[in-house]
Design a protein around this nucleic acid. Sequence first.
DNA 1: GCAAAAGTGTTAGGTATACACCCATGC
DNA 2: GCATGGGTGTATACCTAACACTTTTGC
Lengths: 223, 223
Amino acid sequence: MKQAPANTRFAAVAVDIVIFTIIDDVLCVLLGIVDRPPHYQNIEACIGGLVEVNETTEAALHRHLQTKTTLQNLYIEQLYTFSEIERDKRNRVISVSYLGLVRQSEDVTSLPEGLRWCPVHELPKLAYDHSDMFAVAYSRLKGKLAYTTIAQFLLPKTFTLTELQRVYELITGAHIDKRNFRKKLLSLDVVKETGRMQEGMKNRPAALYTFKTTKLVELPLLT
Amino acid sequence: MKQAPANTRFAAVAVDIVIFTIIDDVLCVLLGIVDRPPHYQNIEACIGGLVEVNETTEAALHRHLQTKTTLQNLYIEQLYTFSEIERDKRNRVISVSYLGLVRQSEDVTSLPEGLRWCPVHELPKLAYDHSDMFAVAYSRLKGKLAYTTIAQFLLPKTFTLTELQRVYELITGAHIDKRNFRKKLLSLDVVKETGRMQEGMKNRPAALYTFKTTKLVELPLLT
DNA sequence: GCAAAAGTGTTAGGTATACACCCATGC
DNA sequence: GCATGGGTGTATACCTAACACTTTTGC
């Protein structure tokens, strides 16, 4: 195993991830119970864990996600590195934080013991500096919504245009005109009709769309 | 001094900074000679250094800037954290990188031995993963130029509108119409006339402007 | 008076916004 | 047939983009 330089026994490096999803028309974030007396008891935080000497921060993140959740196919991007000396009152830990998005689907709601989806508007005070971390993540999400197709990672692979519009409305908090939204979106040439229709609705069924690519595309989706 | 957890003797954490400035109408980046045999000889890199256990990454960055350069009043923002295991062939080092901008002024060109300003279009292959780091920094700079007033940190405190326009043209590589640029800029209400004029020009002297605030302001400065 | 850069308005085309009604389905 | 959300077009205001000449200064 590759060693750190002998004279630089350093702080631990950790990764933490702020994971968003939409459940029942509410934007939620994944929180886990922290139980680390004396400083952190009866308090929640984003999930994460230490980085080993022989793994990248991305590898560490995936390892912690696998051992602590059953979530699959997340969209992940690096967010910010937090290094305040007292950010973890127990030890010196530098944290590389990530933003994660999970598509809406059934298995999202089946979480292991100790984890929960918390609506972002009911967020409690979090352990460590995770309240700041959440704020950075939420701000990044809002920002990227406007000029990328990041919303796709909060929706099922196929979705109705109304569902996509709701993602924008939920996260920006603003009402969007249905006709203008569709006109703009279709002009950007990033989604295509699947030809299939929503089923089991008690009203007129909506056409199902899908993004042309699962990559994040940069373009001004909202003005 | 606060200790790292006993069981987490970790890789070193470093900071590195990609510093841009404009010299003689050319966008340049600060490089320093690296001399670390056997892997890194006769090669340049961005400046940086290790983070100590009892300092934040920002504090470490300022410490290394002070000891290695005479630059003052930089604009600095965190960029990205690089953690590839082999990114430094000598030891495991995670690097928190920063973007730095220095205003054009005389003292910018008086650099200590071993440092130089390299035009971004003549950039050599850099040590470690600093070529990637540069690419991320350059991309961030281009991106933020479009929707913030970040250009102010590449200009003297007072400047002419033509100088400001040149910053945009240099970094985006696109020609901008003078009349449209001025109209847009003035409508955004971020700069004000100082009332003073450029002196010593062999042509008509230009009015000197200044930004209303030295904070970074977010707004669409370019379409 | 000539060279060099500063400064200034108008028009046309495209984009954003505001707005209301009919349609398809389940019950 | 009624309640529910799906789906569609137009008119206006605004913003963007293209474009050329006069002004001021140093030499």
